[in-house]
Structures are given as structure tokens and as C-alpha cells.
Write a protein that binds this DNA or RNA. Structure first.
Length: 172
DNA sequence: ATGTTGATTGTTTCC
DNA sequence: GGAAACAATCAACAT
């Protein structure tokens, strides 16, 4: 069931580049169907029928582009971990200003995600309720979700940021 | 043949 | 408030 434990990366040695970094996610499990027979009350969370996937964070947005670039310069590298590491290092190397555009995009995705969640939350399946918690927000918003549908494309508001400067004021 | 792992960081989620 | 899970990706490896 849990293959590849000793030999992790296929070909990319996992050279720990970071001195202090615990890979928390080391093993989170992709699909654990161990004994769950019951209403998913095992550890954390339950089973959601079609819940929207989490929005890609700025890092992931950056990674998407980075992957393409990285693979272009390293067609031989086929390990996802290699891109992950390389991307991670570069990400840390980037400044907030450079991350800004990615964050902006990620922020947009988050907004969309909220919309999806709104629709998702609306779904009421007869069962599954939170016992006594009657937090039903309620109604009346049926159209809201539809309304948000329009405008898929972003309209970019140009963010002009870049306030670089560090330097000083010339008081000198 | 199908499923899972691996690695990165950021956000999301639950208690 | 904090900890754990999970988001994309793709080839390789395990069952």
C-alpha cells in the first residue's frame, strides 16, 4: 500500500538543501481509503461530493510558468521534485514586487473559489447536517452565483507598484 | 493497468 | 490559534 518508501524520488536524490525545514507534508496521503467505512469521521474532514479544489496559491501560479521554463532548459529532467525544489529556491529569491503579479492572480483565483464555495454550500443534500448547528445562511441569493458567472476574464487593473526605493531621502 | 509517491510553498480547513 | 492536508505536475515505481 505504501510503496516507494525507502526509495523516494525516482531519480532525483532528495538532497536536503535546507538545513532547517521539516517537510511537514512529507506524507499526507493522496487517497486514503483505509478503513473509512463510516461517514468519514475519521480524522479530519469529511467526504465532499464535488467540492471545488483549492485555488492555486501564488507560488503555484508561479510554478506553472516556472515548470514550463524549467523544462525548457532542462528537458532531461523529468522529476517533479526537481522543479519543485528549483521553483522553491527561486521563489524565495524573488522579491515581493515580483511575487505581486502572481499574488494578484492567486487572489483572483481565490475570489472565484469563494464563488464556487458559495454554490457548493448552497447545495443541500438532505443529509449531512451539522447536528445542531443551524448556521444556514440563507437564501435569497440564488441569483448571486449566477451573477458572478459573468466576467470571467479579468480586467486587469494595472497595478503599478513598484515602489522600489530604498534609498533614501536625501538628507545627506 | 492503475494508483501512489515525490517536492515545493501557500492557502485552506478543522478542532 | 495551530497543525495537517492539500493544491499542480509527470514520470517512475509498486501492487
Amino acid at each position: 500500500m505504501k510503496p516507494a518508501k525507502g526509495k523516494g524520488a525516482p531519480r532525483t536524490s532528495k538532497e536536503a538543501v535546507k538545513p532547517v525545514d521539516d517537510r511537514k507534508v512529507g506524507k499526507r496521503k493522496a487517497a486514503d481509503k483505509s478503513s473509512k467505512g463510516q461517514a468519514g469521521k475519521d480524522k479530519r474532514a469529511k467526504k465532499d461530493p464535488n467540492k471545488p479544489k483549492r485555488p492555486a496559491s501564488a507560488f503555484f501560479v508561479f510554478l506553472e510558468e516556472f515548470r514550463t521554463t524549467f523544462k525548457k532548459e532542462n528537458p532531461n529532467v523529468k522529476a517533479v521534485s526537481a522543479v519543485g525544489k528549483a521553483g522553491g529556491q527561486k521563489w524565495k529569491s524573488m522579491t515581493d514586487a515580483e511575487k505581486a503579479p502572481y499574488e494578484a492572480k492567486a487572489a483572483k483565483r481565490k475570489t472565484d473559489y469563494e464563488k464556487l464555495m458559495n454554490a457548493y454550500n448552497k447545495q443541500d443534500d438532505g443529509d449531512e447536517e451539522s447536528d445542531k448547528s443551524k448556521s444556514e445562511i440563507n437564501d435569497e441569493d440564488e441569483a448571486s452565483a449566477e451573477e458572478g458567472q459573468q466576467k470571467q476574464e479579468d480586467e486587469e487593473e494595472d497595478e503599478e507598484e513598484q515602489e522600489d526605493e530604498d534609498d533614501d531621502d536625501s538628507d545627506y
